[in-house]
């Protein structure tokens, strides 16, 4: 569980986050949605400790991050899996080396055990036969999947994904969504997903935070977002006509 209390962050005087409060629950897929530039990535990077908030508290399982010692912070970070918006694969390493990297750095596994684990994880993200390719030699969608594999290979307690399925075709996107949800349940992970994808919202939105103008304009679940009458939310979520029609039909009970 990660609890955020009154989080503020600004860049050169411009306030991007204006006091956020939210609880990201363990064993659930927690979604952050919002327009491009609304500060979703900044929000996530504050939780990761890449940015330091001006004000506010971030608690990991009940303990404020600011009270962690350096050693505890390092230990915490080993338990975090992160999928960056751009993938952030190490471009000097092959696909296999990228995925193996956290194991090599933080575990005492034998080479054969690592190979085995990497193989399983790459299969789970539907990526077979690209082991020895360099990141520059595979497509953007494949890079995304390698990045997910790298984030989950060491069985993290917290999983952060910045748009894990942008740039993927609908089939693969669904596979990835379901995979993230599965492992979240399976290993009781606190998972936070930033997404633009309404399919994901309606599919795996167990808990949703809608970020707008630096505040959380709406929070709820996928069932609630489906029924809500809140105009700011419906304007964003149902900006696509098709979704609007589906929703209207559903609500009328067809």
């Amino acid at each position: 569980m990660i609890e955020v209390k009154d989080l503020h962050k600004s860049f050169s005087g411009e306030e991007v986050l204006k006091g956020l409060n939210f609880v990201f629950e363990r064993g659930k897929t927690n979604l952050i949605i919002g327009q491009s530039g609304s500060g979703k990535s900044v929000f996530l990077k504050n939780m990761l400790g890449i940015f330091t908030p001006e004000k506010g508290i971030i608690e990991y399982d009940g303990k404020p991050y600011s009270e962690f010692t350096d050693e505890e912070r390092r230990e915490l970070r080993k338990e975090i899996g992160m999928v960056f918006q751009g993938g952030a694969l190490f471009d000097s390493m092959t696909v296999k080396e990228n995925v193996m990297f956290p194991l090599k750095m933080f575990t005492k596994m034998k080479k054969s055990e690592m190979e085995e684990r990497v193989k399983i994880v790459l299969e789970r993200v539907n990526l077979v036969g690209a082991d020895d390719k360099m990141p520059s030699e595979i497509s953007g969608g494949m890079q995304k999947r390698v990045s997910i594999a790298r984030a989950i290979v060491n069985r993290p307690k917290y999983l952060f994904c910045d748009e894990p399925n942008s740039g993927l075709d609908p089939t693969t996107a669904t596979v990835i969504d379901n995979l993230i949800q599965e492992i979240t349940h399976e290993f009781d992970i606190t998972t936070i997903i930033i997404t633009h994808d309404m399919n994901s919202v309606l599919e795996i939105g167990e808990k949703i935070a809608f970020l707008k103008d630096g505040v959380l304009a709406w929070t709820g679940t996928k069932d609630e977002i489906f029924r809500t009458e809140d105009k700011t939310v419906t304007d964003f979520v149902y900006s696509s006509d098709l979704f609007k029609k589906v929703r209207d039909a559903q609500l009328k009970g067809y």
Partner: peptide, 10 residues
Amino acid sequence: EQIDALEVMG
């Protein structure tokens, strides 16, 4: 963001 990725891993 590869440097961020390293830092995030601790």
